[in-house]
Design a protein around this nucleic acid. Structure first.
Lengths: 228, 228
DNA sequence: AATTGTGAAACACTTCACAGCC
DNA sequence: GGCTGTGAAGTGTTTCACAATT
């Protein structure tokens, strides 16, 4: 499921290059995945390819957009008009990925009424009514962690079914809602494991008792055998 | 590996509440993971708990920070001082998660010299030298997709070992570098699968040939049996 | 009695190998 | 010959069940 958008991106690149037919090997090359995996994934949703030939670029792209529900542009609400929210709103406005921020809400009265990427910021207490009325079913949450739970409950009440949450808290998804979490802190902290701290030597250790950074080295060497 | 930061966050919450001892069940409750998984994870790095008692909150938190290399604050560079970059810089400055943006680079001359969260923005062509000199080993890339590859090559040249990439392109990690990708487009598009398009009824279908949204419904019901 | 640590079983996911088509 | 589609094998991860420990 998470890989379909990756294929879609590669297919759009190929379409820009006027490539009509693409093989699983070519797609693998461009996505960094294996040809078998791509074939399995695509076959799961039905037979889109022709044996001995490959996949028809335009048809496959359209099929994937259809599976994802992106053939009509999906309207998304943004909650939280800070720097992060602004970046996201502008981003979806620039290129058309099938998803676009069409409503923005913030609790700060100073922000209400301003425009971001052409969309007027509305007060938070108008959110539930507006989303219901406009039948918006997806939202991006870019508010402080303390407000996330309340905002997500409100979104559930408004009938929102999918949420992309940037707030650094693990909130359980209400019934009927799916939440994808983007947690920068978690990413940075887990990435930290792979970098050597200052003062550490990146070569082999010189005796002494096993310390945590040796664990780190050991683990690191599992995935990067040569490591320089 | 990716779960250690989750445990760490829960442990810090517990420490704020002056909880001295915590069981795998309590941690499971707070993280949404299973007790067995937590025990397996922690046991993998060594025995931190006492049978019949639980885990000592402070010691476990410290051990995890040690494994991740976060007991000394990790200095990180930010490349790209747009809205997204600004949000991230401010975010790491506010709370101390063991990771902090201490250098910012941008190619826009208008941004160079300004301050974000107390850090002066430097021109991109000073990046490699500055990072080498200050021994900065981790970076956040928040530049347009077109620049991402070049920036990441420069970071590799500067000795950076870990990169958190927000640019919507899959760049292969250079030797000795680990890249974590945060791709908002991909997240939004895969989330789109789970929401019903406007006009669709969320109940059962009324005959006709199987269409993609029925696939969507079918898949959705696998993970959310009741779904309302 | 409560809780960890851990081998075994179950499960999920990926890769392999090749049959079936073009 | 080249490529897809797919059962089978392989690999990795999660859950189960329980022995070990306080």
């Amino acid at each position: 499921m998470r890989r379909l958008p990756i294929y879609l991106r590669a297919l759009h690149e190929l379409l820009d290059e006027d490539v009509q037919i693409v093989s699983s090997h070519e797609l693998a090359e461009r996505t960094g995945l294996s040809p078998e995996q791509i074939r399995k994934d695509l076959a799961y949703f039905g037979a889109f390819g022709r044996r001995g030939v490959g996949y028809e670029t335009r048809i496959l792209a359209s099929a994937i957009r259809d599976i994802l529900g992106l053939n009509r542009e999906l309207r998304v609400a943004l909650v939280g008009a800070g720097n992060l929210g602004t970046a996201l709103a502008r981003y979806t406005a620039d290129r058309h990925h099938g998803v676009r921020v069409v409503a923005i809400f913030d609790s700060d009265p100073h922000k209400v009424g301003t425009r971001i990427a052409g969309v007027v910021v509305q007060p938070l207490d108008q959110m539930v009514d507006t989303l219901r009325q406009r039948q918006i079913r997806m939202a991006i949450v870019a508010v402080p962690a303390t407000q996330a739970r309340r905002v997500i409950d409100m979104l559930a009440e408004a009938g929102v079914q999918g949420v992309l949450n940037f707030a650094p808290t693990k909130v359980r998804a209400p019934r009927g809602m799916r939440i994808h979490h983007v947690d920068v802190t978690l990413e940075l902290q887990s990435l930290a494991f792979w970098v050597t701290a200052e003062g550490e030597v990146s070569g082999s250790s010189s005796g002494g008792e096993p310390s945590s950074w040796q664990v780190r080295q050991c683990r690191a060497e599992k995935e990067y055998p040569p490591r320089q």
